[in-house]
C-alpha cells in the first residue's frame, strides 16, 4: 500500500532508447499537450490552491476577501448542519450505492440469461438513463405525490396506505434511491457487457465439477467481472459524493415553490441536505465563500481517498503500454 508504482518498470529502457531525442524539447508533445496542460492549471490546480487561501478569509464575492485565520475551520465544530450533511451523504454512499450496484448487476444477469429479446430488454432498462435528471426528478415528484400520485393510488387500491414519500423525512432518501435505481441503465449495460464476456469454457468446467447456479455465480462470474465491478463501484461512489441535482430539484419543487429561499434546500427537515447541497447553500445562498471553501477541501480529502483506489489501478494501466 505504501509505494504507489508511479514509475513504469521499463522506464530506463524507454529513456535510453530516446536518449538522443530527449535532450531537445519535443515540440510535438508540447503542442499536443498545451490545451490540456493549460486547462488543468487554470480549472483544477489553481482552484484547489485558491480554496486553501479562501478558507482562511471572509469573502462574499462583492467586497474583497479579508484574512480571518482559522475562524472558518473553527466553525466546523459548531456547525450542526455539517453533521446532518455528512450523515445524509453517508447514507447515499453506504446504502444507496450498494443497492444501485446490486440491482444493476441483478438485472444484467437476468438479461444475459434471456434467450430472446436481450437487445430489446437492454434498451428498455437503459431508456430511463436518457431522461434529463431534472425531468426524471420532477416526474417522480408527481408519481410519488402522497394524495393524488399514481403510486399511492395504486397502493390504496390494494388496501395499502402509502407513505408520504418525498414529504416524509424518513422516506425522502429511500424515495430518491428509487429514482436513482430507475436510472441505473448505464451501470447495467457495463455489467451486461462484462457478464457476456466471461469465457464459456469456465462455465463448462464448473458444470463438470458439478457446481450449482449460485456456486457458478460466486466462483466463476463474480471473479471474472471483478475489475468492472470495482470500476463501477468507484464511479458510483464518486457520483454519490457529488449528489446534488435530484436533491435540489425535489426539495425546491416541493417546499412551496420558495426556490429563492435557502430554507427550501434539504426539505423535508434537512433530510435531503447532502454535503454538496450544504456546500451550495453556504456558498451561493448565504455567500459564505470562505466556509464553502472549507467544505470543498473536506470533500476533496474524502474523494481523494476514494480516487486513490482508482489511481493504483491507473498506475497499472500506465505501465502496460
Amino acid at each position: 500500500m505504501t509505494t504507489l508504482p508511479l514509475r513504469p518498470r521499463n522506464r530506463t529502457t524507454a529513456s535510453t532508447r530516446s536518449a538522443g531525442r530527449s535532450k531537445r524539447v519535443n515540440w510535438a508533445v508540447v503542442g499536443l499537450m498545451a490545451p490540456w496542460a493549460l486547462g488543468f492549471t487554470v480549472f483544477f490546480a489553481y482552484p484547489l490552491l485558491a480554496n486553501v487561501y479562501l478558507s482562511l478569509t471572509r469573502y462574499d464575492l462583492i467586497s474583497p476577501a479579508t484574512y480571518i485565520g482559522l475562524d472558518n475551520w473553527a466553525f466546523l465544530l459548531h456547525d450542526e448542519a455539517l453533521l446532518t450533511g455528512v450523515r445524509n451523504s453517508a447514507w447515499i454512499l453506504l446504502i444507496g450505492v450498494p443497492v444501485k450496484l446490486v440491482f444493476a448487476f441483478f438485472v444484467a444477469l437476468l438479461i444475459s440469461r434471456a434467450r430472446r429479446g436481450a437487445g430489446l430488454l437492454r434498451t428498455v432498462f437503459y431508456l430511463p438513463h436518457l431522461m434529463p435528471l431534472v425531468a426524471a426528478a420532477l416526474a417522480f415528484v408527481v408519481l410519488l405525490n402522497p394524495s393524488s400520485g399514481p403510486v399511492n393510488t395504486l397502493l390504496s387500491s390494494v388496501g395499502i396506505d402509502g407513505p408520504l414519500w418525498f414529504d416524509d423525512p424518513r422516506w425522502a432518501k429511500p424515495s430518491l434511491l428509487m429514482l436513482d435505481s430507475w436510472m441505473v441503465g448505464n451501470l447495467m449495460v457495463i455489467f451486461l457487457a462484462a457478464v457476456l464476456d466471461v469465457p464459456q469454457q469456465l462455465y463448462e468446467a464448473a458444470d463438470l465439477d458439478g457446481a450449482g447456479k449460485l456456486r457458478k455465480l460466486w466462483h466463476v462470474t463474480l471473479p471474472a467481472v471483478r475489475p468492472v465491478l470495482v470500476f463501477a463501484a468507484v464511479t458510483a461512489a464518486i457520483d454519490a459524493l457529488q449528489y446534488f441535482t435530484q436533491a435540489y430539484v425535489v426539495a425546491t419543487s416541493l417546499s412551496g415553490g420558495a426556490t429563492t429561499g435557502a430554507e427550501s434546500l434539504g426539505y423535508p427537515n434537512d433530510s435531503t441536505l447532502f454535503f454538496p447541497v450544504l456546500l451550495y447553500k453556504q456558498g451561493f445562498r448565504y455567500f459564505n465563500m470562505g466556509y464553502a471553501s472549507v467544505l470543498a477541501l473536506l470533500l476533496f480529502a474524502v474523494s481523494f481517498c476514494v480516487a486513490f483506489v482508482m489511481l493504483r489501478r491507473a498506475s497499472r494501466w500506465a505501465s502496460d503500454m
Binding site: A50, A296, L311
Partner: peptide, 17 residues
C-alpha cells in the same frame, strides 16, 4: 485520472469568483 475522479463542487467557489 485524478481530475476525472474529482467532484465538481471541489473547484466551484474559486472558479465562480
Amino acid at each position: 485520472v485524478a481530475v476525472m475522479m474529482l467532484p465538481a463542487q471541489v473547484t466551484l467557489v474559486p472558479l465562480y469568483s
